[in-house]
Design a protein around this nucleic acid. Structure first.
Lengths: 398, 398
DNA sequence: GTGATTAATATAGACTCTAAATTTAGGTTC
DNA sequence: GAACCTAAATTTAGAGTCTATATTAATCAC
C-alpha cells in the first residue's frame, strides 16, 4: 500500500537513504561542518561521520582542512564539501537552425559553451557530426574527458516518450535522426537523455529562471512556432506519447488558428500591412522585414508597428489563456528567440488575459535567453546523476 | 539528492517499509501463505512472520486456520489475509442536483449506497443536512459506526486545492458551503478529503472503469457542463489553484464556444430546430424535449434527431481534440449523466477527431454510470488510508 | 509407524542506527 | 606556559532490523 522500493529493505537501505539525504544537503549548501550536517539531517554525529567517510571514498565529497567559522571556541570541526568536480554533465540543445552545447559541473555551473549552425544541414549524419564537433569543442575548452561526463541531456523539437525515444509522426520529423541518442553514446560513451525541447525549457525556468520555487509552471516557447512545457506540482508532464504541451490544438482556437509563434506572426502581419502602399510607417525603411525590426519600430513609437504588436499580444493572450485555464499553472513563462522583445507585449497580454478568466496565471518573460533549452538539458542530466549518484562509479582521476 | 523521508532513517524505518510492502501485497491479493509472501516480497521467512505478527497486532491482517492449496505435502502453512473490515471508507458525491454516498470496505467493495435529491436545497446548511442524512442511512444499512470510518472522500463541482480547500471564484459557488469539510468532520469525526468531482472521476475510471492500467488518462464529464479530470503517469493534475481540467477555455474554441455539456447542447439544439414549424420529426410528440428523448429518437432513426447528434458529436470531438492534443492522454473517457447514450456518438467523435490530429487519443464511454464520482471518492479515501495505514490506530472492535 | 516433504521456529551473525561516556584540539586566562 | 574552557571528535555499549542456517514440527504417503 505504502510505496516501497522494488527490492526488500535491508539494513543497507538505511545507509543508502541517509547517504542520499546527506549528499542532497551537501550538493546545495556550501562547505559544511559535521555539526551543521547533524542539524540539517537530524542524524547522529556517529552516523554523519560514517556516511561522510563513505561519500569521500566514493568521490562525491571532499574533506577540507579542519577550521572554523569565525567564532573560535572548542575543537575545530571536520569540514566537508560537495565535490562538484566529481564529474560533469552536458546540456545539448539541437534546434532547427542551431545546436548549443553547455558543459557544467555537478552544481550546474557552466564551464564551457559551444555551438554550431545547423541551417545548412542536409542529412541526419551531418547534424550529428556538427553536434559532435560542438561537444568536442566544449570538452576541450574545459579540459574534460568523455570518461568524466556522467550524463548528457539533449533537447530536440519533437515529442519524446518517457523512455527517451523520439516519436516521429509527421513528414517533417522523418528527416530527423531518431537514433541520435545511440549515435552520441557510441561516439562518446556517456548516457544520452533525450527530451522534448519545451519540456527542458520548463525544467530550466524552474531551476534557474523565472519559475524558481514555482511548482505549477508552464513555459511557452514562442519564437517561430508555439510549443509548451508543463509542470504540475514540480513534475514534468509527458503524456502517453510524449505529446504533453503539444500546441496543435491552437488550430481550433478562435483568433489563433495555427501554431505560428510570435516572431513568425509579427513578420507575417508586417508583410501584410506593407502590401498596402498607402500605409505610412518606418518599417518601409528596413532592408528586410523581421520581428526584431517591428519590435524596434514599435519601441520608437511607430503607430503601425504598435498596432501589429497589439494584435500579436491579443493572439498570444488567447494562447496563454487556453493553457492557463486547462492546466492552471501559477506562472506562464514566455521564452524562445523573441523572449526579450516580448517584454513589450506583457502589459497587453495581461490585460487581455483578464478578460478570459478571473484567475489568470501570472505571465513573465524568460531571462535565460537562447540558453533556455540547454540550461534545462543540464538540469535534466543533473536529475539523472542525482537519481543514480550512489550507483555510479566515478572516475577517481577528477 | 535522492528523495528521502523527512526524518532521519533509523532501523525502525526498515520495518515500516517492509510492513507497507507486505500490506500492499496482502491488500491486493487474497489469502496468502508465508511462503507466498516470501516470494512476493523477496523477504526472509523470519522477517515475513515478524511483520505479519505486527500487522495482526495492529489489526490490518487476520490469520486463518493453517491449511494448504490442494497440493498437500509437508507442514501446513500459516495463512494470512488482509482484514478488509479493519475499517471502512465513504465516497460522497455532492452534485448540483443530488448527493450520492457509498460505503466501502478496505478493498473498496461497496457495502451500502444512499442518496438524496438536492434540487430543492436553498442554503448550505440544508445541503449539509441532506448529505448527513444519506451518510447516516448508508452507515445504518451496513451497521457501521462513525468510529470505524477511516476517511471519507468528497467530490464537489468546484475547484479544490491540494490542501482540500474549496476555492470559490465566481458568484455561483459562493452559494456553496466552502466549510463543508469541517462541518462533516464535526458531525462524524472522520477525516474529510475534499476533491473536485472531475478529478475523482478520473481516479474512479483509473481504478474500476475504462481506464484501468492506463496511466495517462483523461475523463470528460459531459452532462450539463463539460468538466475534466487529468492524469499523467498515474498522477492526478491539480494546477496551482485546483483548476487543472477546467474547461472555461472552450469559450475560445471554434465550434464550441461555451462549456455546455452534451445533454444541454442536445436539448438546446432540439429546441432550436423545433422552433421552425415546417420541420417534421417525432420529437414533436414528446411532452418535454430532453437529451434522452433526442437520443431515443435518433436510435429509432429520426433524421432530425440524427442530425442533432452529428452536430453534437462534432462539437464534442473538438473538445476531446483540444484536451487530447495538449495533455496527450492515451484514453479519454466520456462520463456523466449522458455517458451511456453517448455511445451512439462515439463513431462520429472518433472520425472527426482523426481530422484534428494524427495521433488521437482513444475515446471510450464510462461504464460507471452515475457512480463515477462516488467510486472515485472511495478510491481517494482509500489512497489516504493506504498512505497513513501504519500510523492509524484502528478501533479493534471490527 | 516410518520416511518424505514443507514450513515454522530458534539461533547466530552482520549492518545500521542512537546514546552516552571519553578523548582531543584548539582557544582563553592568569 | 600551565590550567581551564569549549566544542567537536572518537569510542563504547546497546537496540532494532535484516539474513542465513540449523533445528523442530506438522502433515501425507506408504
Amino acid at each position: 500500500m505504502t510505496s516501497a522500493p522494488v527490492t526488500a529493505a535491508t539494513p543497507a537501505l538505511l545507509r543508502r537513504v541517509n547517504a542520499g539525504k546527506l549528499l542532497g544537503v551537501l550538493s546545495t549548501a556550501g562547505v559544511m561542518t559535521g555539526t551543521g550536517l547533524i542539524q540539517a539531517t537530524g542524524l547522529t554525529r556517529a552516523t554523519v561521520h560514517a556516511v561522510c567517510n563513505d561519500l569521500i571514498d566514493m568521490g562525491w565529497v571532499v574533506e577540507l582542512d579542519p577550521g572554523r567559522d569565525d567564532t573560535a571556541v572548542g575543537r575545530p570541526s571536520r569540514r566537508f564539501e560537495f565535490n562538484s568536480r566529481a564529474g560533469y554533465v552536458l546540456g545539448i540543445d539541437i534546434g532547427a537552425g542551431r545546436t548549443t552545447v553547455l558543459l557544467a559541473d555537478l552544481r550546474g555551473e557552466t564551464l564551457a559553451k559551444a555551438g554550431r549552425s545547423l541551417s545548412s544541414v542536409k542529412t541526419p549524419a551531418e547534424r550529428t557530426g556538427l553536434v559532435h564537433e560542438a561537444v568536442v569543442e566544449a570538452l576541450a575548452v574545459a579540459d574534460v574527458r568523455d570518461s568524466q561526463v556522467l550524463a548528457a541531456g539533449v533537447g530536440v523539437a519533437a515529442p519524446v516518450d518517457r523512455a527517451g525515444n523520439i516519436l516521429v509522426d509527421d513528414e517533417f520529423w522523418r528527416r530527423f535522426d531518431t537514433d541520435l541518442g545511440h549515435r552520441l553514446t557510441e561516439l562518446h560513451g556517456w548516457p544520452v537523455l533525450l527530451e522534448n525541447d519545451a519540456n527542458l525549457a520548463v525544467l530550466g525556468e524552474h531551476w534557474r529562471g523565472q519559475g524558481q520555487g514555482i511548482d505549477d509552471l508552464a513555459v511557452l516557447l514562442a519564437g517561430e512556432r508555439f510549443g509548451s512545457g508543463l509542470m504540475d506540482s514540480g513534475r514534468l508532464l509527458h503524456g502517453s506519447r510524449g505529446g504533453a504541451g503539444e500546441m496543435l490544438y491552437l488550430k481550433l482556437v478562435e483568433g489563433v488558428g495555427d501554431t505560428h509563434g510570435i516572431a513568425r506572426t509579427t513578420r507575417d502581419q508586417a508583410v501584410a500591412v506593407l502590401a498596402d502602399p498607402t500605409v505610412r510607417t518606418r518599417l518601409r525603411d528596413v532592408s528586410e522585414v523581421t520581428a526584431e525590426e517591428v519590435f524596434a519600430a514599435a519601441a520608437a513609437g511607430d503607430e503601425v508597428a504598435l498596432g501589429i504588436l497589439r494584435s500579436v499580444a491579443a493572439r498570444t493572450a488567447r494562447v496563454v489563456a487556453t493553457l492557463g485555464i486547462l492546466v492552471n499553472p501559477e506562472l506562464v513563462v514566455i521564452g524562445g528567440a523573441v523572449a526579450e522583445a516580448a517584454g513589450q507585449l506583457l502589459p497587453d497580454i495581461e490585460e487581455q488575459l483578464a478578460g478570459y478568466t478571473s484567475t489568470p496565471p501570472r505571465v513573465a518573460v524568460s531571462s535565460l535567453g537562447d540558453a533556455i533549452v540547454s540550461v534545462g538539458a543540464v538540469r535534466h542530466a543533473l536529475n539523472y546523476v542525482e537519481q543514480h549518484a550512489l550507483d555510479l562509479v566515478l572516475t577517481r582521476s577528477a
